[in-house]
Simulated assay, not measured.
Amino acid sequence: MRTESGNQEIFDKLVYVSRCVKVVKGGRKFSFSAIVVSGDGKGKIGIGLGKAAEVMDAREKAVHLARKQMIRIPLRDGRTLHHDITASYCSGKVIMRSAPSGTGVIAGGAVRSLLEVLGIQDVVVKSVGTSNPHNMLKAAMKGLKQIKSPRYIAQKRGKKVGEIVGKREHGLKVTIKSDAAPLDGFDTSEITTE
């Protein structure tokens, strides 16, 4: 479901609906709970859980809560994660790895919906342990909150972004000759890759 909030477009995705039955004197009483993920497809994401006597009411509550709890996640090139993550919540454990362009979203269950709404296009995810959507989503969110962008790390260490990013490109070992020019204006002929 798409909706315009201010000037940005927000996507809502219903992940899971569960039904609870309470047996009372007059018969059976039903209640429903719904999990919804909301995001703008550009790095903002939120999870909401709503409970009500009707499915639509539970969904509306979940959407409201998800939008209220949205947080910003830094993405690499607007398509993948900056680094690999392992996170767990209760019995749910999620391993997320960044992937090269063209890989697509390789994930299952509730985590796939979360990553699609977030705006990630290339990622590999493995869920270990429970398949309970509550725990899987919370583990994924816990992991996504741990992501640090190179700009943030460079600022914390007092270095330039090029010094941090240059080491991770394509997983190659890069050696720069000691008499080479500084990283700002380096010459590619001075660099050898293995």
Rank of each mutant, 00 (worst) to 15 (best):
I95S: 13
M96T: 11
S98L: 04
A99Q: 08
A99V: 05
P100D: 03
S101G: 00
T103D: 07
G104A: 06
G104H: 09
G104T: 12
I106F: 00
V111P: 09
V111E: 07
V111H: 03
S113A: 14
L114R: 09
L114A: 14
E116G: 05
E116I: 02
E116A: 01
E116V: 04
V117F: 03
L118A: 07
L118R: 07
L118F: 04
I120A: 11
I120Y: 02
Q121W: 03
Q121P: 00
D122S: 09
V123I: 15
V124E: 07
V125G: 10
K126T: 14
S127Q: 15
G129I: 11
G129Y: 07
N135V: 13
L137R: 01
A140T: 12
A140Y: 05
M141R: 01
L144Q: 11
L144V: 12
L144C: 10
K145Q: 14
Q146K: 15
Q146H: 10
K148I: 12
K148C: 07
S149R: 03
Y152G: 00
Y152R: 08
A154G: 10
A154W: 05
K159E: 13
K159A: 09
K160M: 06
V161H: 05
G162Q: 12
G162Y: 00
I164N: 08
I164V: 15
